[in-house]
Amino acid sequence: MMLTAVSPMGIAIGKSAALPAITVVEAQERSDIGAVLIVTTRDGGGFAETLSKALGCTLPLTHGDVLQTVDKRAIWLTPRSWIILCAPDDEADLVAAINKAFPDREANASRFSDALAWLTLDGEAAENLLRQGSFLSFEPLGFPIGHGKRTPLAGIPAIILRESEARWTIGVERSRAQYFCTWLAGLTNSFEAAQ
C-alpha cells in the first residue's frame, strides 16, 4: 500500500492553491515548498563550507540573509541552524547528503517540510496585514527584498520572506496554519471596511 500526502490546508503536495477567504491580497498555499532543518553542534561557520558543499548552496551567516540557488534557498535561523527550502521531493536527498558528510553528526539534517505550512501573500495590502501581527518593520529599509526573518506572527512561530516589494512568503507552524488563515481572512474583512 502507498500512503498519499495532503498539505496542511488540504491540497495535493507540489502545488500552490489560492486561499479565497483572504480577499485584499492574493493568497496562496504553497505545498510546492519543501524544507530541511540543519543544526550544527558548535557555533559559527566552522561547518559552513562542508555543509555548503554537501548541499550545493552557500549558507548565510547572519540574520536576515537568504542565499538562493536555482532550486534552493538557505535561511539563517540561529548561529547554529539553517532552513533550506527545496522542492518537496529533494528533502530526503538533502538529508542523506548532509548526514553522509557528517558521519559523527557534528552537523545534523532533519526532515522539516511538514513542520511549517507555507503561504504567499501578494499585493500592496500585505504589508499592512503583516503589521497587525508582528513587530517587525516592513518598510523596504527595515525588511529588504530577498531577506528572511523569524518572529512570532499573530502569536505563532513564523518565518517571513520578502520576495519582492509586495510579495511575501510565510511559513507558519503547521498545527496552527488553519488558524493563521482564518486570522488573515478576519483582518482582510476589517481592512476593507477601514479603507
Binding site: 547572519t62 540574520h63 536576515g64 540561529t78 548561529p79 513587530f135 526573518k149 518572529t151 512570532p152
Partner: peptide, 11 residues
C-alpha cells in the same frame, strides 16, 4: 547580540 535585531518583549 546574536541576530542584531531589535526584539520586543513579546519575542
Amino acid at each position: 547580540p546574536y541576530c542584531g535585531q531589535d526584539r520586543h518583549e513579546e519575542e
